[in-house]
């Protein structure tokens, strides 16, 4: 199997890089490309455009609307009425920048907690007998398939004041007063760690599983204690998996809405929640667009880093 793969790779490198592209090949590229351009990329420009508009009591609730039928004069007039007022507003009102800061903080903390929970799990899976591994892998993936909303909802019944966790702790005599966990940031941490754990464990397991055990054996033969072998061999070699996993947790967690909304309380400031409230409760589309644009700017760096890392990993596999 590996031989045929190696042969295939060798053949591929011999083949001329620039083949003449047939019409079919162009069509193959064009269909998904066009879909993504129109439904993924173009919408971002519209968000940006509307973030420069003003809120209005109209349908749609912003001014000016983009209207090509007015021709160039109309377009110029539209452009001149665009303003960065919404962005200024975001900086002046401390609700917004506090939400951004607290989102990044909550996401970073939960990413770290997820790593603390996920690393031993991934490590245990990678070191488990080979015959168990497919089953263990399946067991990690399965919760990922079951609904996100349901998994967050399940924690409400556990973390409530009269919930199962408090009942257990009271019964064990650890506490005499029920702890308030639900509707605090602690519940948000639990929710994020729980929901995003598979995202971290899967890439981490993939790198740990490939780790060459003979390196560890060599270290132990040369008298290196296991904890040191772990720090100087396992940890550095698992770094690509750690990084990929952390990005997969951190980036979506920054903009998370469901978890802070259901598990968090009024003290929980997260930008996803703020954007939702701005859009659905205040119906201020321009301000929520501006909130989205800034959120995107904050996330651009981690997203680009994540993509580069994915691309490198992909090229290495190929």
């Amino acid at each position: 199997m590996t031989e045929t793969l190696a042969l295939g790779a060798a053949e591929e490198s011999k083949a001329p890089a620039k083949k003449r592209r047939s019409l079919g090949n162009w069509l193959l590229i064009a269909v998904p490309y066009a879909w993504l351009l129109f439904f993924f990329l173009v919408p971002f420009f519209i968000v940006f455009k509307i973030s420069l508009s003003e809120v209005a009591v109209a349908i749609p609730p912003y001014l000016p609307t983009f209207d090509l039928s007015e021709g160039w004069a109309g377009l110029r007039e539209n452009l001149s009425s665009f303003s960065f007022e919404n962005y200024l507003f975001l900086f002046e009102d401390d609700l917004y920048w506090k939400s951004y800061l607290s989102s990044v903080w909550i996401a970073a903390t939960s990413t770290l907690l997820t790593l603390l929970v996920g690393f031993p799990l991934a490590y245990g899976m990678a070191r488990a007998p080979k015959a168990w591994q497919p089953t263990l892998l399946m067991l990690v993936i399965l919760p990922f398939w079951t609904s996100f909303l349901i998994r967050v909802y399940a924690w409400i019944g556990i973390l409530k004041n009269e919930g199962l966790l408090n009942q257990l702790l009271l019964w064990l005599g650890v506490i005499d007063q029920p702890l308030t966990i639900l509707n605090t940031n602690a519940a948000v941490y639990v929710g994020i760690v729980y929901s995003y754990l598979p995202f971290l464990v899967l890439p981490l397991y993939a790198t740990l599983e490939k780790l060459d055990e003979s390196l560890l054996e060599a270290a132990s033969d040369l008298g290196c204690p296991p904890w040191r072998a772990f720090w100087s061999i396992t940890v550095p070699l698992s770094l690509p998996g750690v990084i990929a996993g952390c990005f997969l947790v951190f980036i979506p967690a920054v903009g998370e809405f469901v978890i802070p909304d259901l598990l968090g309380g009024s003290e929980t400031l997260m930008i996803g929640k703020t954007l939702w409230a701005e859009f659905f409760n205040n119906r201020d589309w321009p301000v929520s667009s501006a909130v989205a644009v800034i959120l995107l700017l904050i996330l651009v760096v981690p997203i680009v880093l994540f993509q580069n890392q994915q691309q490198r990993a992909q090229e290495k596999d190929a």
Binding site: P43, I251, W276, A292
Partner: peptide, 23 residues
Amino acid sequence: FSGMIYAPLVMPEVILGLSLLLL
């Protein structure tokens, strides 16, 4: 192209939702 494939995997849902609605 590959950027547009990988970005939605991590893009916060509120941004995807809002941008599509505005489209």
